[in-house]
Each structure stands twice: as structure tokens, then as C-alpha cells.
Design a protein around this nucleic acid. Structure first.
Length: 537
RNA sequence: GGCCGGUUCGUCUAUCGGCUAGGACAGCCCCCUUUCACGGGGCAAAGACGGGUUCGAUUCCCGUACCGGCUACCA
């Protein structure tokens, strides 16, 4: 028995999957689902699988799959197996697994757990309006109505005939009712009284929600196999999770209502004992009001919702991503992790490695979290400060170059990055904070100093130029010392001269300590900017 | 409507029956800084409501309210 248990553990290596539908940009909530999958897998030395759920051919979007890989790569959450990376359970794209699903649907029919239905979508639409039932559902009551065209009403012969004639059909789950039970367990009533066990009720443990009481009676007869031969999500997720040996299945809370269906399918196809452990993650909500966060909210409130820029190939409409808005992937991941999870301490800044070590599904919060862009910005700022100047160089350099700044000296840029990163919330902030190191400022805020300008200050700067020309050690502390000495000799408060000096070098009232700027600029450039500015005053 | 889930400062959250309810973001104030930041210090701010259980409930149970999700041949 003991050996058996160990063996069992080995077979059931942790394997999780993220199964997006490639229909457009990758949403914050999607990335968080990836993250939690990834963290859980890596924490347990398991595998993280990416499966593409493209069973709805009407929703195919060019480039969407490739985009998902790019987002995962940017985030540093690489799958161990995927359509692109391959793996022992290929193919990982459901459209390429079409043939697999049908046999399971037919197995269910053979077992009496599913049936054929011949209504077209239009006919179902018609029923909904004719019957004036807004939510007409195919279920244990309606499926036996003589008006319905399904294998239960029509009988075996007629059904076969229709199928042989090429009539389009779907396969629907036949949710159990008491009459069916009577056939298989004649004395079920006594048993129910004796044991109190309702065979249609199942208890499932959800890793974040605890014990869930499920009732098969709560779901209707969902379509399992569509008329085009493709499975719906419901069938595909169960079949593929089984075939791919998924040990833990994590998904958004919006799937909770169909959990009884999925459990029903596991029950009748592969056995509950083989079912993965479920965890239904809380939703990410709109910052204002309520409801699920959507791309629209980002557009409306001015923040990204997608991981990376996404351009809809049909409308050419571009939606901004966190990457392009100037977020570091570390910050993006960190922020997402803290929405709904914490390690029980006050620690908030985590690297991916730290998250992998600390993560546990039991510490995931149950309630949805409103997205707070201000906090997201704080995470980014923290990560910019925390990231080494050298690593920032590789990220910031292309951004500056794109902005038309020519970088000839990486060492100089590293110094500058160290000087300015405290004041950058977004990576793009490096442009404004560094451009004046490389180019003479285009706009000089002379208005900030002109009103208080006088001949005395003119003389001071003339003297400063002479002194700086002779300076041997062009270092910020030396420059500051000389500056203050000359100010003292001329009997001007240094404070009144600092701002003019800053404006001369930077163009505006911002940037690091002015003498640090002068040091990086070098003697020639510093003097040239002072001289240029004096002419404007 | 039906079913399922949720409910601690404005926001993200800690608390696994003992609470003067802790932290972070945002806000406000002060210090540091002759720019802007960083940093340091401080202020303000919460257990939806009603019943139980208990010596004691934010914590456990039940109702109510509110919020959300689902209710497609979409995922």
C-alpha cells in the first residue's frame, strides 16, 4: 500500500495548464492566471503547459496565438510544453485534436450520458422567442418534449436515419434525472433514505474556496460536440486535462457555474479519482464601479489592460500594453501576484524567483480585487529603483535611441541612469530625465529666472566661467565648492544662483543635483551652455 | 428570474476565537533637499446588517442586504 502511494505520487507529477482562446489581446486577468499556474508548477517542480483552445473557428484572429507567446516571453513565464515548444502530449492546439474528442462524445452517448440533438441555432432561437422564455434551456424537462428533435424523443431508428442523411447534429450532455437512476439502481430511494447520499450531489475541494457542494441538477444539457465536429470548451477541457495528465486545473471564477458539468464528465469518462485538483481564481474588477475589468475600462480610464500592445487585424485598432506603457516585466508580474495573493507578511516586492519559493494556492484570496493603477505605478517605480543600472541600460538605451537620442557612450548612460532612476515611474520617463545630458535643451525656461536676473548675477557667472575653465578636477564636489566660494565672495546667496545654473544646464526645474549634471556634462559642454544662456538674459 | 460565488480603511490586503483591528498605495502634514524626486517621521481612514454558538466574535453557524459571475453549437 505504501509503495503504491509513492508510485501514485510519482505518476502524478504536478502538471498545470493555461488554456487561452486566441481571440485577441492578453488581458491582465489572463496573465495572472498564467502567473499562478506557473508559480504553482515551479514551486512543486512541475510542468507548465500552454494549450491553445481554438475550438471556435468563427472567432479565429490572425496573429493572436503568436501574440500570446510574445507576452509570455516578455513576462518570463515560459511554458514547458506548448504548440510552439512541443512536448510529449502534442498537439497542444485543440483544432488539431478535433478527431480525439468525437470518440469521447460517442462514448458518453453509448453510456447514456449524452444524446444527439438536431435543432439548429436558428431553431433554438425560434423556440426562445415563441415560448417567450428568455432563457430556454435544453434540460431534463424540455428534452423530452415531443416537439424537440433529439435522439431521446425521436428514438434510435429515426436518429440513425437523420445522421445517415447528413443532418447536422450536436451532442449534448444528458444530465441525470431520477428516472434514469431508477433504471440503474432500482432501490435508490431506500438507499437515499439509508445513507442520505444523493448520487447527483458531489463534494469537490477547491484549493482556494475549500469544499464546494455541487449538484448535477444545477446544469442544463450543454452542447459537448458542435455541429462542425469541434468540441465545446466543456468537453475539450475535460478530455485534454485527462489526456495531458493535468494534475491541477486553475481558472477564473467565472467557470464555477459549469464546474458540476465538468465533474459530471469526469465522473462518467475518466473517474473522479483521476480528476485534477481545482482552484477557481478571483476576478480582477474595474477600479470604479463594479464588474469584470475589460479593455474598455482601460481605454476609458487611461491605463493598459493588455500585457503588450495589441492591434486588431480587422479594425486596425491598437490597444496599448503594459510593456509599451513603460512597465518592467518584473513590476508587472509582482503587481499581478499581489492581487489576490500574499505570503502572510508585509513583504510586497517579490522577484519571480521569490514568488516561486513563497507561493501557495491556499493563500489566494477568495474575493475579486479592483485594479488600482496607482499601485501598479508604484510597483513599477519600486522596480526601476531596485533594478541595477547595468540591466536598465539594456532596456533604456533602445528607448532613448527611439526618441532620437544618440548614445555613443554606454558608461556615461549607466551613470546617468543611476542619477535619474529615482525619478522615473515609467521607462519612458528616462527620456525627459536624460535627454539634456546628450543634447543642449531645446526649450530653456528663461522665464523662471529672468524676473530676478541682475547685473550682479551676470558678473557671478562670468567669474564662474573663468574659474571653471581653470578647474583641474571636474568633479561635482569640487565644482560645488568653487561655486559657493565665488558666490560668497560676490555676496550672493548660493540659493539664488542654483536655479539659474540648473536652468542653463537642464532647461527646466527638474533633474538630479546640478553639480552632478555638470560633472557628467563635462567642462566644455557646461561652459558652453552657461555662455549660451547668458546671451538670452 | 434561476443557479453559483463573494463581503475588513477610498484601493490592495493581514488577522486561521482574545483587537488598543496591522501593513501598503493614494490623500494630508512635517523633516531632509537652495529644482524635481528619493528617504525619514506623522495624521486621517475599515470588520454590510440582524440573529445565534461562546466567558469572549472580524474570525464559526443561520438569515437579510449588497456586489459579482454564469445562464450560447464563446471561452
Amino acid at each position: 500500500m505504501h509503495t503504491n502511494y509513492i508510485c501514485h505520487m510519482n505518476i502524478n507529477k504536478v502538471r498545470v495548464r493555461f488554456a487561452p482562446s486566441p481571440t485577441g489581446g492578453l488581458h491582465l486577468g489572463g496573465v495572472r492566471t498564467v502567473l499562478f499556474n506557473y508559480l504553482f508548477a515551479k514551486h512543486h517542480n512541475g510542468d507548465f503547459i500552454l494549450r491553445i483552445e481554438d475550438t471556435d473557428q468563427t472567432r479565429f484572429v490572425e496573429g493572436a496565438e503568436d501574440y500570446i507567446y510574445q507576452c509570455l516571453e516578455w513576462c518570463g513565464l515560459q511554458p514547458d510544453e506548448s504548440p510552439k515548444h512541443g512536448g510529449p502530449f502534442a498537439p497542444y492546439k485543440q483544432s488539431e485534436r478535433k478527431a480525439i474528442y468525437k470518440q469521447y462524445a460517442e462514448q458518453l452517448i453509448a453510456q447514456g450520458n449524452a444524446y444527439y440533438a438536431f435543432e439548429t441555432p436558428a431553431e433554438l432561437e425560434q423556440i426562445r422567442s415563441d415560448e417567450k422564455i428568455n432563457n430556454f434551456q435544453y434540460n431534463i424537462w424540455t428534452r423530452v418534449n415531443q416537439k424537440m428533435k433529439n435522439s431521446i424523443v425521436l428514438g434510435e431508428e429515426k436518429t440513425k436515419e437523420l445522421i445517415n442523411n447528413g443532418t447536422p447534429y450536436v451532442i449534448r450532455a444528458k444530465m441525470p434525472d431520477w428516472k434514469d437512476l431508477e433504471k440503474t439502481i432500482p432501490d435508490y430511494r431506500e438507499k437515499l433514505v439509508e445513507t442520505g447520499e444523493n448520487p447527483f450531489k458531489k463534494t469537490v475541494t477547491d484549493l482556494v474556496r475549500g469544499t464546494l457542494e455541487l449538484d448535477y441538477a444545477n446544469v442544463d444539457d450543454k452542447v459537448l460536440l458542435k455541429a462542425d465536429g469541434m468540441p465545446t470548451y466543456h468537453l475539450a477541457v475535460v478530455v485534454d486535462d485527462y489526456l495531458m495528465k493535468i494534475s491541477h486545473a486553475f481558472r477564473g471564477e467565472e467557470w464555477l457555474p459549469s464546474l458540476p458539468l465538468h465533474v459530471f464528465l469526469w465522473d462518467n469518462l475518466f473517474g473522479l479519482e483521476n480528476m485534477p485538483q481545482w482552484a477557481h481564481l478571483p476576478l480582477i474588477l474595474k477600479p470604479d464601479g463594479n464588474g469584470k475589468l475589460s479593455k474598455r475600462d482601460g481605454d476609458r480610464l487611461g491605463f493598459p489592460v493588455f500585457a503588450m500592445d495589441w492591434t486588431d487585424p480587422k479594425t486596425n485598432e491598437k490597444t496599448i500594453g503594459f510593456k509599451e506603457r513603460g512597465f518592467l516585466p518584473e513590476a508587472f508580474i509582482n503587481m499581478l501576484a499581489m492581487m489576490g495573493w500574499n505570503d502572510g507578511t508585509d513583504k510586497e516586492i517579490f522577484s519571480l524567483e521569490e514568488l516561486v519559493t513563497a507561493f501557495s494556492m491556499e493563500r489566494v484570496h477568495k474575493a475579486g480585487a479592483k485594479f488600482d493603477y496607482e499601485k501598479a505605478k508604484w510597483f513599477n517605480h519600486e522596480w526601476i529603483k531596485k533594478t541595477t543600472d547595468y540591466r536598465l541600460l539594456t532596456i533604456v538605451k533602445p528607448i532613448l535611441e527611439d526618441a532620437g537620442i544618440n548614445i555613443d557612450d554606454d558608461k556615461k548612460l549607466v551613470t546617468i541612469i543611476g542619477l535619474v532612476k529615482d525619478r522615473c515611474t515609467f521607462l519612458a520617463d528616462f527620456i525627459q530625465q536624460s535627454v539634456f545630458f546628450f543634447k543642449q535643451p531645446e526649450n530653456i525656461d528663461v522665464a523662471a529666472i529672468k524676473p530676478k536676473w541682475n547685473e550682479q548675477k551676470n558678473l557671478f557667472f562670468a567669474e564662474l566661467i573663468r574659474a571653471y575653465e581653470l578647474t583641474q578636477f571636474w568633479k561635482h564636489d569640487e565644482l560645488e565648492k568653487e561655486f559657493k566660494e565665488i558666490a560668497a565672495v560676490n555676496e550672493i546667496k548660493a540659493g539664488e544662483l542654483m536655479l539659474p545654473f540648473r536652468i542653463m544646464l537642464v532647461g527646466g526645474k527638474f533633474g538630479p543635483h546640478v553639480f552632478n549634471i555638470a560633472e557628467v556634462l563635462g567642462k566644455q559642454e557646461t561652459l558652453s551652455r552657461i555662455k549660451y544662456c547668458l546671451k538670452l538674459l
